[in-house]
Simulated scan of single mutants.
Amino acid sequence: MADVTHLIKLSVGTDSVESLAAWQATPAAQGPDGCPRHVTRMWPRRSEAVLNGGSIYWVIKGLVQCRQRILRLDRVTGHDGVERCAIVLEPGLIRTYTAPRRPFQGWRYLAPSDAQGDLPEGRESEESLPPELAGALAEIGVL
């Protein structure tokens, strides 16, 4: 059986976990099955490990703030005729402890040992801290 591997991705243009959830609720962000998906140019070479319980960790405003379980990888063809990878996600975002993350392009693999833990039950519905404050607290190890 393959090890688990996660992906990490910047959520470009998103201001908060709530705005990412609102975007994913739109038809433009969903596949034919109604599940949210992120279409990317590259296919994960470690797809077996990603599909073995992996999640995509979303970086919003420079902080890892939430994750979603990856359900499957679908081949899709763009309007330009180029084949791409649709990362199909479980609906709903799971809030995580925050951690600062420098900008990067595309997605990256994330080892389970480096992944942020989920917020404890009861805290997942708390309003997000302003990104600057959450980042400062994460840097000193409080969040």
Rank of each mutant, 00 (worst) to 15 (best):
Q105R: 13
H6S: 04
Q68I: 01
W58A: 00
L20T: 01
D118K: 11
S19D: 11
S19Y: 00
D118C: 11
P103N: 13
Q105H: 12
P27D: 09
R95F: 00
L10S: 08
A28Q: 15
L119R: 14
I87P: 05
T14W: 09
P130W: 00
S11V: 12
D15Q: 10
E127N: 09
V59F: 01
L71M: 13
I70M: 11
T40S: 10
R101S: 15
P27L: 06
D33A: 14
L133C: 05
G78M: 09
W58F: 02
S55A: 15
L63K: 00
P44Q: 06
P112Q: 03
L110A: 01
R75M: 11
L73E: 10
V17Q: 05
D33H: 07
A99F: 05
L73W: 09
E83G: 09
Q30W: 02
V64S: 10
P100S: 11
A29I: 03
I70S: 08
A22Q: 14
A22R: 14
V17T: 14
P32G: 14
I70Q: 08
P91A: 03
L10V: 12
R37Q: 15
H38F: 08
G117K: 13
P91S: 04
E18C: 00
E90I: 03
R45V: 12
V88I: 07
P27Y: 05
A136F: 08
L73I: 15
L89N: 07
R108Y: 10
R95Y: 00
